[in-house]
């Protein structure tokens, strides 16, 4: 279990990470998302004790990592953004070295090599293998010693679609015995793997929830998209008189004489089945219902919306501060 409390990292006067608070529970996969330069890698580097924090605490299994003995680092396996590989070694030599470095049992190495499909390349020099293979060797070194916690920084980068699926399945299978904090730019991958998402923007956490809950929070409740065949004006007029459905968005001419409408419950306090109401609405007004399905928000949209909202609110705060300053100045000059 990882507990991060009021974590701050400053480089000179710049705050790379500011007052981060989050928890990663045992056997949970948490996705760590953010734009480039948001502070993801800095946070992961601090959790793995590669760099130290300026203030705050990182508690791993109840113990502050500041008081951690070097031998206690065994608990974490880390795959950095650029896998830490020695290009003049063969894959086997490198994994043997990591085994010795981590004082791990060499017997487990065979399983890791098989699990990550490294048997064919184990005698090749690392400088001669592909980027995807390097990534897999990097993950193999993180798995050596069977660490309880895995910190994976962009594990999918450089992998082809086939390898990506394999990596995804592998990470999913690791969940049984490991606690995993994973950062990635490939949001669809994260969505498939992670139980929970933490979104970080400009060094601050802007969202921490399950992907479904984040989508629901953004869309403010459930929505259904339906395709109706009929006259546009008639549909909108009929909708105006409907007591249960509210159209939040529509797209005309998606097909000949059809339009797509996004519906939500007009009165959220009243519990209704939106699908039923849409069907009744079409039936009563003689429209043809061609399709209806839940209106979901993709992770990309969630990510963009959250980070954009955060920036807008920050800009607003800045503007307000500037206005306050101007007002103060004006008041001073009046006096």
């Amino acid at each position: 279990m990882i507990q991060v409390q009021e974590l701050t990292k400053c480089y000179g006067k710049t705050k790379a990470v500011e007052n981060l608070n989050f928890v990663v529970n045992k056997n949970e996969i948490v996705g760590f998302l953010g734009e480039n330069g948001a502070g993801k890698t800095t946070t992961l580097n601090m959790i793995t004790n590669y760099i130290s924090q300026s203030s705050g605490k990182i508690i791993i299994n109840g113990k502050d990592i500041c008081c951690q003995k070097p031998s206690e680092k065994k608990i974490i396996g880390y795959l950095p953004e650029n896998p830490p590989l020695y290009f003049d070694m063969t894959v086997q030599e490198y994994l043997n070295f990591v085994c010795e470095l981590k004082k791990a049992d060499k017997k487990s190495l065979k399983d890791i090599i098989e699990k990550l499909d490294l048997s064919e390349i184990k005698n090749k020099l690392i400088k001669n293998i592909s980027k995807g293979c390097k990534q897999r060797v990097g993950l193999a070194q993180a798995l050596i010693g069977n660490p309880e916690i895995l910190i994976l920084d962009e594990p999918n980068s450089g992998l082809d679609p086939k390898q990506r699926i394999k990596m995804r399945d592998l990470i999913k299978s690791l969940k049984q015995n490991h606690t995993i904090l994973i950062s990635s730019h490939i949001l669809s991958e994260i969505n498939e793997i992670a139980d929970r998402l933490i979104i970080i923007n400009k060094g601050k956490i802007v969202a921490d929830n399950t992907p479904n809950q984040l989508a629901e929070n953004l869309t403010h409740g459930k929505k259904i998209i339906a395709r109706l065949k009929g006259n546009r004006e008639e549909i909108l007029a009929a909708l105006y008189e409907n007591d249960f459905l509210e159209c939040v968005d529509y797209k005309k001419n998606v097909e000949d004489g059809c339009m797509d409408l996004v519906f939500k419950n007009k009165n959220p306090e009243q519990k209704i089945d939106l699908r039923e109401q849409i069907f009744m609405f079409a039936k009563e007004n003689n429209f043809i219902l061609l399709m209806s399905k839940p209106f979901g928000v993709s992770l990309e949209e969630i990510f963009l919306k959250i980070t954009d909202e955060n920036e807008i609110s920050e800009n607003k705060n800045l503007q307000n501060e500037n206005l306050d300053l101007e007002e103060e100045k004006n008041n001073e000059s009046d006096l």
Binding site: N45, T48, N49, Y50, P70, S71, E72, K73, K74, I76, Y78, P80, N82, P84, L85, Y86, F87, V98, L101, K102, K103, Q141
Partner: peptide, 17 residues
């Protein structure tokens, strides 16, 4: 330069060693 220090400094070995 090769960022392999990330492996060494996060491994269960002290810097002095």
């Amino acid at each position: 330069r090769n960022k392999t220090d990330q492996l060494l400094f996060t491994a269960p070995v002290s810097i002095s060693k």
